[in-house]
Write a protein that binds this DNA or RNA. Structure first.
Lengths: 196, 196
DNA sequence: GTCTATATTTTGATAGAC
DNA sequence: GTCTATCAAAATATAGAC
């Protein structure tokens, strides 16, 4: 996922370099505050190279979006294989907390970027497939009695809202300790909110 | 707050018209997708008039930010006068849900706009005074035993994260029914998460 | 595939009449 | 205070050599 990907010969893939630079700049300064010149400079390539690999600036953001959503989908798919709702939800919290610490740029792209403002066609991330899968987990948990009877959209709202907020507070520097430190309190609160 | 404010003679205050137009456009299309020409047109004033009342485009956004934060501060200050933590938190949920239905643009400005991207100096809204006051309410509730013992930042994260997420889902059209419809489920979940 | 140089467009902001 | 006309800068995207 936006890997450094240095090939055996030691040469870097320009496309990867461009995406890596764009991710950093988009999440740090915002899409509109980032110029092609900025990306060009950080990726250490020329303008021509950027336009060789991408149709335009929006296409870079689009490629990042696709990559991140697919990666999230894969993770959620794996997590759905766990045996019960408690384990599944717990694993999602841990995944998000871990990503926030180890891949802050990717996490910022997920929880803090307003994609609709520059990705004309894309549905909002809140309507995208990973979020729908989360709501499905909630529906199933309610059906099997593992979760309290409530509107599934409220359940996923409580869950994702809480997790995303904690992640954001950490990324913005409000939480001084690593997210692991807040995991027990956060999980206890979420589970009390959702369990029967 | 961003009032229509038609004076006795029926003439409109240009400054108000400009701010009203800017709020609508900023929340609908985003700050960077909104040009001075767009604001000019919707507010039905000339470019010159805009720059007579505001130093530049950022100053319009800044004035909106100030107005919204002050209004929120006032509401929270009133709510803090309520007799206990249960009533206070409940009142904040109801305030946000009601604002989302009746003043969707203001609510979108609060929960969905990335102010830091265009308001250079301002602290993130998550660090601003209304949010700090919320955390204080949590600290007090925990101290008096009205809330479970937990990190106050987690408490406010659970609370604000959940409320803001429900509001956003409604503003984005994911929730088809009015927020009142989800209030009981939402509040029950929040209170179970926070109460002893 | 990668580069430099340049064209084109947009738009934020100003000047100055009324 | 309000307007029109215009400037100046920025930045996206292209052309074309190597």
């Amino acid at each position: 996922m936006v890997a450094t990907s240095i090939d055996p010969v030691g040469k870097k893939d320009p496309k990867e370099e461009i995406m890596k630079a764009a991710l950093k700049l988009f999440t740090e300064k915002g899409y509109f505050n980032t110029s092609i010149a900025d990306i060009r400079q950080l990726a250490d390539v020329s303008t021509g190279t950027i336009y060789h690999y991408f149709k335009n600036k929006e296409a870079i953001a689009d490629a990042l979006f696709e990559e991140v959503v697919h990666s999230l989908e894969d993770s959620i798919r794996e997590i759905r294989k766990l045996s019960n709702t408690f384990e599944r939800l717990r694993a999602i919290v841990e995944l998000f907390f871990e990503l926030a610490e180890n891949e802050p740029e990717i996490m910022r792209f997920i929880v803090a970027v307003r994609h609709q403002e520059f990705l004309g066609n894309r549905p909002a991330l809140s309507l995208s497939s990973p979020f729908q899968k989360l709501t499905q987990i909630m529906e199933e948990g309610i059906r099997t009695g593992e979760l309290r009877r409530m509107d599934p959209l409220v359940a996923s709202g409580v869950f994702y809202g809480t997790v995303a907020r904690m992640v954001l507070l950490r990324l913005e520097g409000v939480l001084e300790k690593r997210l692991e430190w807040y995991l027990l309190d956060t999980w206890t609160a979420i589970w009390r909110a959702l369990s029967p």
